[in-house]
């Protein structure tokens, strides 16, 4: 449910940068979403459309770019992508890898129309 407040923050950010940069509207917003960020992508997409209504971001394409967290196996030292806190090493089957990244929720770029 917190996706609505996240969507509203994203729209506020886009409108603020549009004002700063000058332009008529935003046509694309690129957003990085980490695999362990606690965000439901479908829900965020739905909320972005609702939150963008009647703003200069209304017609924008929202590109949600997944960013995978990485796990480092404590046993065989392999590094692999993880999408859960309970990841298992695909090579040796060891549990509890050291997890890094995957928590990001970031607006990378905006495409602004003059």
């Amino acid at each position: 449910m917190h996706e609505m407040s996240l969507a509203m923050s994203i729209i506020d950010l886009a409108v603020e940068h549009l004002r700063r940069e000058g332009g008529s509207r935003v046509s694309e917003v690129d957003i990085e979403v980490g695999s362990l960020a606690g965000v439901m992508v479908d829900s965020l997409e739905f909320c972005l459309e609702a939150a963008a209504r009647s703003t200069p971001v209304e017609e924008a394409d929202f590109k949600l770019v997944p960013v995978m967290a990485r796990g480092d196996c404590s046993s065989c030292r392999r590094s692999f992508e993880v999408d859960s806190f309970f990841a298992v090493c695909p090579v040796c089957g060891e549990t509890c890898p050291a997890i890094s990244g995957g928590q990001e929720l970031k607006v990378r770029s905006l495409t602004i129309e003059d």
């Binding site: 996240l6 950010l13 957003i31 970031k106 607006v107 990378r108 770029s109 129309e113």
Partner: peptide
Amino acid sequence: EKSSRTVQIEVDVLAKN
């Protein structure tokens, strides 16, 4: 002339909070 440009902003969505 209609032009569009992409601006890199790299802002954390929760930055304000």
